Simulated scan of single mutants.
Amino acid sequence: MKIVDTVIRVRYAETDQMGIVYHSNYIIWFEIGRTDWFRKIGQDYKSLEEKNILLPVIGVNCQYKKSALYDDLVIIRTYLKELKGVRLTFHYEVLREKDRELLAEGESQHAFVDRNQKPIALKKKFPEIWEMLKNNLE
């Protein structure tokens, strides 16, 4: 399993008046983690899109545990949890870097589709990408 840790610093624009990260930013952080995960396994989003493979989000959830604050360094821990048919699921943990406290965790589900939103049987059409994903599965 390929676990990728991506470190970011909480920006002022991501917080509310109390300096607490606004909830929707965690979903954006999940995307940062996911795109970094793909880069680290050698298959970035841009090259997938050039092959007419898109990965729209078909489901997402997040459980908030503790607040991230302005200027915190946070770790977005990402791994591929499930690869099945035309779908895949990523798991995320958001941790404060200094104490490794779990701030939030969640998942996102995606479908393999082409530009016309038609499902792609990745295992058949792009077996090399399927194998790369399978080799980096939890």
Rank of each mutant, 00 (worst) to 15 (best):
S24V: 11
F38M: 11
K65T: 14
M18L: 12
T6P: 02
L83H: 03
H23N: 15
R115D: 04
K51L: 15
R87D: 01
F38R: 09
P127V: 11
E49S: 12
E138Q: 14
N61P: 10
D99R: 03
V113T: 06
R11F: 08
K81V: 03
V10S: 06
W29P: 07
E138N: 15
I32P: 06
Y70G: 15
E138D: 15
Q109G: 11
N136E: 06
V94I: 07
L95W: 00
K65G: 13
D71S: 12
I32M: 06
A68P: 05
T15V: 14
V21M: 08
L103C: 06
R87Q: 07
I129T: 12
T15Y: 02
R115A: 13
K51H: 09
Q63P: 07
D71L: 06
F90M: 04
G42A: 10
M18D: 11
N25Y: 05
L54R: 11
K81E: 06
V7D: 01
K81N: 07
M132G: 15
E105Q: 13
A68Y: 00
K2R: 13
K2G: 06
V21L: 06
L48S: 14
H91F: 13
L103A: 09
W130K: 08
D5C: 05
V7L: 04
K65M: 08
L73W: 00
S47E: 09
Y12G: 15
A13W: 02
S108F: 00
K123L: 02
N116G: 07
G42R: 01
Q43Y: 12
L80K: 02
F38A: 13
E31L: 02
